[in-house]
């Protein structure tokens, strides 16, 4: 069941009310990032920061190990009497690889957690839903068990939805 709202404010308020009334499996769609949208949906804290930390530490450890192996163990060179385990010189590479892997973890982690790219989604069946990428603010509520699509449609209408529609289909 999807419903269109005319302002982002109405969408966020409706989302919060619907969640408080016990509806689950909801999602919001808007042409730009919605202030307060994830709070209204009651989403848990993102796991992306943790992924970034793990990625960053992996990069730092890899760069340190790799440079130690190359410069100290596999092919030690005496340059002007400097120690072969000259670890300060490795810090720039450790830093760079740490940043790189942290950035990759954020980028691919976000794609993975959001299950993107997603070439098909049931809401795409609706012709009116096209407005979500220009000027429409949409809320989708999954109809399950006693929460029939009629009841959801009534609730959304009462909360100020200008248009409601039933879309059928399974998320992949």
């Amino acid at each position: 069941m999807i419903g269109e709202f005319s302002t982002p404010h109405a969408l966020v308020d409706a989302t919060r009310t619907m969640r408080e009334r016990g509806f689950t499996h909801m999602d919001t769609y808007s042409p730009y990032p919605l202030h307060g949208g994830s709070e209204a949906l009651g989403l848990p804290r993102s796991k992306v920061p943790l992924l970034a930390l793990i990625g960053g530490l992996t990069g730092v450890a890899t760069a340190f190990t790799f440079q130690t192996w190359m410069n100290t163990i596999d092919y030690p060179l005496n340059v002007g009497g400097r120690p072969t385990f000259s670890w300060p010189m490795w810090v720039p590479i450790m830093f760079e690889l740490g940043v790189l892997l942290a950035a990759f973890s954020i980028f691919f982690g976000l794609l993975g957690l959001s299950r993107l790219p997603q070439p098909y989604h049931p809401v795409f069946e609706s012709e009116a839903f096209r407005s979500a990428s220009t000027h429409g603010y949409w809320l989708s509520v999954e109809a399950k068990g006693e929460q029939s699509s009629e009841r959801i449609s009534q609730e959304l209408g009462a909360l100020g939805a200008t248009h409601t529609e039933v879309v059928k289909g399974e998320r992949e």
Binding site: G80, R82, S86, P88, M89, V91, P92
Partner: peptide, 12 residues
């Protein structure tokens, strides 16, 4: 702090 140290360490 590290930038300052690295240059001194590398040039020696």
């Amino acid at each position: 702090a590290f930038s300052q140290f690295l240059l001194v360490w590398a040039a020696n």
